[in-house]
Design a protein around this nucleic acid. Structure first.
Lengths: 238, 238
DNA sequence: CCCGGCAGGTCTACACTGTAGATATTAGGC
DNA sequence: GCCTAATATCTACAGTGTAGACCTGCCGGG
């Protein structure tokens, strides 16, 4: 006999009262599961359990699991603020880069979605929330005086570098934070010294990786390179 | 590397000659499935069917599905050649970048693995094949006169940019190649014009994206920026 | 000849997944 | 009361990874 959870006090003391569902509530719960337990843990049944609902009911708020994942990425990207009216476009790009980096560190389990979902969805069919940063940054650059097509070039170089950095940084992960030997912290001792001398020798530098500083340097290089390159010859004849 | 030649008419059950299995054969078959039918299609049962074997037998060559995926990424990365003795490190980096780009275009379905698998595996525990490029490029740079730690910085900027570019390029995908209107080719007509004016206006530029040229420009910018930046002040005091 | 071991291939079974479709429950209008 | 529409829940099915039992051929030794 199943227990109808009509009576409030049966579950664990925290609000056993069924809150009214909405797309935002569902996505927020999904994000929490991904953050806490990883991507694989986000199943319809698990999500239903977290919301004290039948899993089937969730299909009202997301057509299927893929749409649910898209919703989560959208929700995460909404945390990113872009101010279209700031005339200091370089400063703005720098700030956004740092913001996105922090966002990725806050939700590392979502990063695979961030980079992977767009690969299987053509531009025009993506959730609008994920296209908004693109549109806004384009606006930022165009307002700063760039040609539309040059703005696109700058955007590509910028976002490419940015995502690349984030992937890079998230990949260098610590195995055993308590270990004080750098080799061991990264698990590098398992590599055959014969084949990987350089990598092993770089253990200390790998172990104290200042992601923010490195990102900032990269942005500086990129911006200076871009302005130098864009100043002299037009990139293309359109 | 090369697939042992197989009989074309494997569908006809009579002549289904069972070739001798090996790790390479299994991984090659797995890669073929991923290339032809996508990542999701690579299941143990499907792979077993492609090899005319019981799916369970495959666990002799890959401990589990994750290991199988790792094997596939390793196999793909083996296609990338790096010549450690070339003194022209800039030219070498440029060539490798183009090679990796072409490799990604050849195996677009593997790219998610390439960028995603390392996120869930600490450096020291990755399949050795995926670390080899790192080690070799470090060697290239160190032989060219870089400090070990500067080599690491250059590597990070380089690989970050490179992966970023590849993601970028693979994301701008064509919905309907027969369409001659740029808006429609990318599916951009579905975007509300009010919210995405710039993006829609950029449709023509998006539609003819010369990835190789863009990558080359980016590399140029990066290399010049790097050498300028590395020439004057040391990045860090180690 | 038999026999025991052994390594590899095969089968069955189980716990879990997404989700289609039927069913039960509720709310609102007359 | 009764009818309709929406919403919530249940059941069921095809598919997944993989543990563990089973079978099958091959080996050298008696």
């Amino acid at each position: 006999m199943t227990i109808p959870q009509q009576t409030a006090g049966d579950a664990a003391g925290s609000g056993a009262r069924k809150i009214r569902l909405s797309r935002e509530v569902v996505l927020a719960a999904a994000l929490k599961i991904v953050d806490d337990e990883g991507l694989e843990a986000l199943t319809m049944r698990r999500l239903g359990q977290a919301l004290h609902r039948d899993p089937m009911g969730l299909y009202r708020y997301a057509a299927n699991r893929a749409a649910l994942l898209d919703g989560v990425t959208e929700l995460v990207l909404d945390e990113l603020a872009i101010f279209g009216d700031d005339p200091d476009w370089q400063g703005q790009l720098r700030r956004i880069a740092h913001d996105l980096r922090l966002l990725a560190l806050r939700h590392p389990n979502v990063v695979p979605l961030l980079v992977t979902r767009p690969l299987s969805t053509p531009l025009g069919l993506r959730p609008l929330g994920t296209l908004r940063p693109l549109e806004q940054i384009l606006g930022l650059l165009i307002d700063a005086g760039f040609t539309a097509s040059n703005a696109l070039h700058v955007y590509r170089a910028y976002y490419g570098f940015l995502y690349g950095h984030i992937l890079n940084e998230l990949q260098e992960f610590i195995v055993d934070p308590d270990e004080n030997e750098a080799l061991l912290r990264l698990g590098l001792h398992r590599l055959p010294p014969k084949d990987f001398p350089r990598l092993r020798a770089l253990a200390p530098q790998l172990a104290d990786y200042d992601g923010a500083a490195e990102l900032d340097e990269g942005i500086t290089i990129l911006l200076s390179g871009l302005s130098a390159h864009l100043a002299s010859p037009p990139i293309k004849k359109d």
